[in-house]
């Protein structure tokens, strides 16, 4: 029991803009195995082809998506290999580009 709890990390995921419709919620608390990274999280979240197609392109992340870990874009961290830690907040949305 103790060992099991110890191996889990909890993070918060917040969706914005059209991703709120895509994921049908504003935010979610997610439990992952310790040592998980952003790829693990996104694979977990993308539980349908519709969701996967909005996030990934040929196995890689769509480069223009805003995916922030605690306010920092993962592009400036380690991309999909960015490690997640207990208590992290991940924000995901497609940026608006028009004017």
């Amino acid at each position: 029991m103790w060992k099991g709890v110890d191996r889990i990390l909890k993070i918060k995921v917040k969706f914005f803009a059209s991703f709120r419709e895509l994921f049908q919620e504003k935010e979610r608390e997610v439990e992952l195995q310790k040592g998980s990274n952003m790829r693990d999280l996104l694979n977990l979240l993308c539980d349908s082809s519709k969701r996967r197609d909005q996030i990934f392109e040929g196995g890689e992340l769509k480069p223009y998506l805003a995916i922030l870990k605690n306010g920092k874009h993962i592009y400036h961290l380690k991309g999909l290999e960015t490690r997640l830690e207990e208590g992290d907040t991940v924000v995901i949305f497609p940026p608006a580009g028009g004017g």
């Binding site: 480069p63 223009y64 805003a66 306010g71 874009h73 592009y75 400036h76 497609p94 940026p95 608006a96 580009g97 028009g98």
Partner: peptide, 19 residues
């Protein structure tokens, strides 16, 4: 502060958008 490139390092594909 963070700049535009800190927040959005890669540009979305340019296209006319619904508004």
């Amino acid at each position: 502060t963070a700049c535009l490139r800190c927040i959005f390092p890669v540009a979305p594909t340019s296209s006319t958008v619904p508004v």
